[in-house]
Design a binder for these strands. Structure first.
Lengths: 301, 301
DNA sequence: AGTCAGCCTTCGCGGAATTCGAAGGCGGAA
DNA sequence: TTCCGCCTTCGAATTCCGCGAAGGCTGACT
């Protein structure tokens, strides 16, 4: 076990960045001699030379680069911890990690979470956006307490609760022929070029499967990584986009595009709240879930 | 910035795990008083109570749990660093991180890398297996120096070099009707149940696309996460498996299965070595790439 | 009740580690 | 040669850290 403290790591990082122990020392408010000694002790602890001493300063050795990566990692985590602790100092009593698919996030979840945060200011929320498949993985790995995903894949050993419903829609430029009528058939959308999301996305999987079912191949010219980018592409005539209705509405308004509902049964999707089946949830997580499913009943449409 | 050293973190971790400062102290070969004081100082540094003191011991508070996650993270990184440094102490001069798709790894790459390690024992190799899409992402994020992937997706801003070719094949139980003839047509494979890999996999994507092109839907009953698991499933009659020829050969022999080549042009794939286009590689990475492409010429078939 | 056992905290002491400024070595530049 | 910038080494002052002893608290056993 390599013994070191944050101070030393920071000093080492600065030495590598400034290529000078002198400058690193003064940045850390240390005498040069003390800094030099700390570097020496760090090297002894590691059992290797970490810095090449050159006439004009220092330069990390390969082993030094490994330590540098480590230092950056630790210091990064340290900063994040600091932010978390600041919340706890301010009176936070519990913490829940939530991973959500973009679809869920953009629709109800963002609003619901902010309502929750207002209702329970003493519970800290940590939210990350991920594709549904990764969320399932993250649950297994205990990287998150709660996942909000689009139903579809394997949910083995997960406990799920219905959260919201979702409908896919098509975004088209307002001067597009399809923009006139109301709801469209998927078949006519497939005749056009499409702008799609990342492969791993639930929306993408659903579209691909459905196209295959009708024996067609979607023509994909552009792939993007967010709904917003998708609308940009649609606006510039690179193709039509398929995305969740509620996610689309504000964007469509903002970009001056037209939204057409896909009025076919497969285009309805369920958003589910998932947790590990075995574990018992801590009080904060349980409270959040209760809050979310209650709003499903109250505010669901 | 929260000031702490590895010792304190380890002590805190043990205190949380054993629910007792006394036991944590003795595990760390410390007097109880010293341990208690360190915990107190840690709490002062964090500005919060981290451990609830109970009659029978201690219990982490929510803030304590955050620190606990941090401690586990840091200590984990520390261990990995230790392993790396052990190599450097043993005389290693440089280090290269390689992310490879399973297909590449199982075929030529594993052998080539071990040859390289023998030829250049002073260069440390760090190898991880990932799906091709994740590898591309990892290159952008600078999580790896070199990626070996199956050609297919976007390779924007990456420099690629041809590495090897690859052909898909079908694994069937030896008593299966198809096991008689030589190469099979994909169409006849699609009539069977399939055992497939994870969605994110390049093999899986290729199979799905090809099936779609011929207007069919592969029937998937089982999904697995490795070639070996796939062979197990095939052996037990859960379906046919599709995987890279060279990856299959040893497994097929080991399990007593039959391998049928897929003699169709789309079943050929290219494995490519990728790096970030902008960056210049350090000497070790460059040497590895030279080594790999040289062998491509010399030993390629 | 009284006693005991387990656990954590506080306190004062002595040894160890850290810091600091000064002095010194080492290359390159004027 | 003579600076100059950079790092290392050295001895003294200071600070930190661990140890054991003493004390408070709680629950269990007598």
């Amino acid at each position: 076990m390599v013994r070191h403290d944050v101070q030393t790591l920071l000093l080492f990082l600065r030495a590598c960045e400034t290529k000078s122990i002198t400058r690193a020392a003064s940045q850390s408010n240390l005498a040069l001699s003390a800094a030099s000694r700390r570097m020496k002790l760090l090297e002894e602890g590691c059992g290797t030379v970490l810095l090449h001493r050159l006439p004009y300063g220092v330069e990390p050795t390969p082993a030094g680069l490994a330590v540098l990566r480590y230092a950056r990692g630790v210091l990064g985590m340290n900063q994040q911890l600091d932010a978390e602790l600041a919340d706890y100092r301010a009176g936070v009593r519990g913490s829940v990690r939530v991973f959500a698919s973009s679809s869920a996030l953009v629709q109800r979840l963002a609003g619901d979470l902010s309502a929750f945060a207002r209702a329970f200011p003493s519970i800290r929320l940590e939210l990350q956006e991920r594709p549904s498949v990764e969320i399932v993985e993250a649950l297994y790995q205990k990287e998150t307490d709660i996942g909000v995903i689009v139903r579809g894949g394997d949910l083995w050993q997960l406990r799920t609760r219905m959260y919201a419903e979702d409908r896919l829609a098509v975004v088209v430029p307002s001067d597009h022929p399809l923009a006139q009528g109301g709801p469209v058939a998927f078949a006519s959308v497939l005749k056009e070029e499409l702008v799609t999301l990342d492969h791993a996305t639930a929306v993408h999987r659903l579209v691909i499967n459905q196209a295959r079912r009708s024996g067609q191949t979607p023509r994909v010219r552009v792939q993007v990584r967010s709904f917003e980018a998708m609308c940009q592409m649609v606006l510039h005539g690179l193709g039509l986009g398929i995305l969740p209705e509620l996610a689309a509405q504000p964007l469509v308004a903002a970009f001056g595009l037209t939204l057409l509902l896909l009025d076919e049964p497969w285009a309805r999707r369920e958003l589910a709240i998932c947790t590990r089946a075995g574990d018992e949830l801590d009080a904060s997580a349980q409270r959040l879930i209760d809050f979310l499913v209650t709003r499903t009943g109250a505010a669901g449409r």
